[in-house]
Design a protein around this nucleic acid. Structure first.
Lengths: 233, 233
DNA sequence: TCGCGTATTATGTCTGCACATAACAATCTG
DNA sequence: CAGATTGTTATGTGCAGACATAATACGCGA
């Protein structure tokens, strides 16, 4: 027999997962309560709790107090994307990373940035444009705005060898942010920098980060055509 | 004073987060060990453990046995994407969902599908093409291949009113999968179905799901131009 | 000085118990 | 009978103590 004791939370996790998968417990079914499972598996309720909580986090179970635990109707695929620092992403693929700053000026916020960062028109922003390369080939174009009022040190940072990306991570903490992925026709200037055909389909990431209610920075990343962002389910 | 007792894991979580944010503990710093923190906060080590574990899961801390816990150098943004059923995604936006099946044939696997699903050439696949609409406008084109050998019931499913998407979720369990996001120029047939300009930049999701080592299904989703996939950090 | 085994230490997890909290069920009251 | 009150139940979380595990630090011998 392979029925060794199920006395750690990973084993409980796996066994419950197996039962769901084997359709012993079908979507929508109420499963036994923690105390019963603990007794069945011969472990403490806390152990069962941890396993079920983890499964609920993963979207396989729905749990409600008193109502009990049931198998999720729609096992919502939750994909966890790591958003790595670009340098690490490139080096992680075994390619040589290099970086070129293309432009760096201080300018009043454009209308689109005002809305995005929820700032007033006269706010001066530091606008940095840079290119990240993998094995010498353009990989992604970084178009970034930084609120100088929130990150005053940025005025003195040259960004000529270290990307704003990494500098900000190390220097400017943030409390939350939002991120959006989309496909766009490459603007002409971006195409030029990336050595791609203008209007080619490019993967874009827009990201804004906030320190409490103050916008720290907004970035647009235009990836060279062919880029794929991949993960496991 | 607002120094009320920190005796639950959320409070510890918040306090640690605050200290990281306030740069009391800077990126790379070793923070006090669990036992010390528990003493400081006046709670049990298990409580501190849960808070720190959660923060580590979120990517803010790096933990290694014996080496201790340190503030992550690169607070890797881990974006958790919900991959909802398309119908729910549309209805969640307050739009009316509708669905049209465009095509449904059984055919031998094309070379590209063979590689993707790791199957032999002669394997027959059920190929279903369908359109999901929001408020009557094309939203996403679903191009799906199903291995009949793995999901025999699929042969009898008409897929004319319920999308293969939902049918599979309810009928065919899977153990794992992979998903990739990219931008592509819309193929002519897809553009036609989506009523978009051919070669327009479209957001594409490729997803493969597996039941242990057998491929269940592969799907390509072509979203209508303008689609944005969004989440919080 | 170099290598290797051992001691130390921080995290990882289990147990058994307790109480908190949410939600549904049953019952009481006007 | 309607609406409020109370009871019951399942999950959520806390605590103290124990042992497991991994990785570093130290000391010993060649």
């Amino acid at each position: 027999m392979n029925t060794q004791e199920i006395n750690n939370w990973q084993a409980v996790h796996e066994e419950v997962r197996r039962r769901i998968h084997a359709r012993d417990w079908k979507p929508g079914d109420l499963i036994p309560n923690e105390a019963d499972l603990a007794r069945e598996f011969g472990c403490a309720r806390a152990t069962v709790n941890r396993a079920l909580r983890t499964l609920a986090d993963a979207g396989l179970l729905d749990r409600r107090r008193k109502a009990g635990t049931r198998v999720a109707l729609h096992p919502v695929g939750k994909a966890v994307l790591d958003i790595p620092v670009i340098r690490q992403e490139i080096e992680g693929c075994g390619m040589a990373y290099s970086y070129v700053m293309l432009d760096r000026i201080t300018e009043p916020a454009a209308t689109s940035q005002q809305a995005r960062l929820r700032i007033r028109a006269e706010t001066p922003l530091l606008h940095v444009t840079a290119l990240h390369l993998a094995d010498g080939r353009p990989y992604v174009l970084e178009d970034r705005w930084i609120d100088i009022a929130v990150v005053p040190d940025a005025t003195n940072a040259p960004f000529d060898t270290t990307s704003a990306n990494e500098w900000l991570l190390a220097q400017a903490p943030y409390t939350h942010g939002d991120i959006a992925f989309s496909a766009v026709a490459l603007p002409e200037m971006a195409a030029l920098a990336l050595k791609a055909r203008p209007a080619a389909a490019a993967f874009r990431i827009e990201r804004n980060t906030w320190d409490n209610d103050r916008a720290v920075t907004a970035v647009d990343l235009y990836f060279a055509p062919g880029y794929r962002m991949q993960t496991q389910l």
